[in-house]
Simulated scan of single mutants.
Amino acid sequence: MTDDKSARGEDEALKARLEKLSAALDATKQAPTRRFAEAASNDASGQGSAMNLGFRVLTEFVAGVIAGCLIGYLLDLWLGTSPVALIVFIFLGTATGFWNVYRIAMKPTGR
């Protein structure tokens, strides 16, 4: 009778172990599908944030150049100097645009 109880106990332990291994195997089979779905969602959000950053860099650079052109043109009109202030402020606006892009690029990312 003791042998019968110990055999039943071993059978139950083996069944529990088999169920645990089956559950782990099922989870492993589903993991690639889950990882693929997570990767797809990460790529979509990563692509959106990359586009956001690209548009921001473009805007910062173009705004610096346009502001420099506008200031130079208005100074030329006010001072009566032909293209001198325009040329100087185009270069200053371009340098400002590059500086803004550099500052954006040197910011640490959130990851």
Rank of each mutant, 00 (worst) to 15 (best):
I87A: 12
G80C: 12
M51K: 13
L21H: 09
E60L: 10
D43Y: 13
A50P: 00
L86V: 02
A40P: 01
S6W: 10
D11W: 07
E38C: 04
V62W: 03
F36M: 08
D43S: 13
S41D: 15
V88R: 07
R103D: 09
L21S: 01
V101H: 04
N100S: 12
A44E: 13
E10W: 07
L25H: 06
R103K: 15
D26S: 03
P32M: 10
S45N: 13
A85G: 01
P32F: 12
A63K: 11
G97F: 06
D11S: 07
M1E: 00
Q30E: 08
D11L: 12
T28G: 01
A95W: 07
P83V: 11
I90H: 02
L25Y: 07
G93C: 05
R17D: 04
D26C: 00
L14T: 01
A24C: 00
L53M: 09
Q47T: 13
S6P: 00
G97D: 04
L75I: 15
Q47E: 14
A31S: 04
R56Y: 05
W78K: 13
R103G: 09
T96R: 12
K107V: 07
G9E: 05
A37Q: 13
N100L: 15
A13C: 00
D76Y: 05
T28N: 04
A23Q: 02
D76F: 07
K5M: 04
F89L: 12
T33H: 06
A85Q: 09
R35A: 12
F55L: 13
L25E: 06
W78Q: 10
A39L: 14
L75A: 15
A13H: 01
V57W: 03
L74W: 13
G80E: 07
L92K: 04
R17W: 03
Y73L: 10
A63T: 09
V88G: 05
D4T: 01
M1W: 05
T96L: 15
I104W: 10
A44P: 01
S49G: 06
L92Y: 04
G68I: 02
E10H: 07
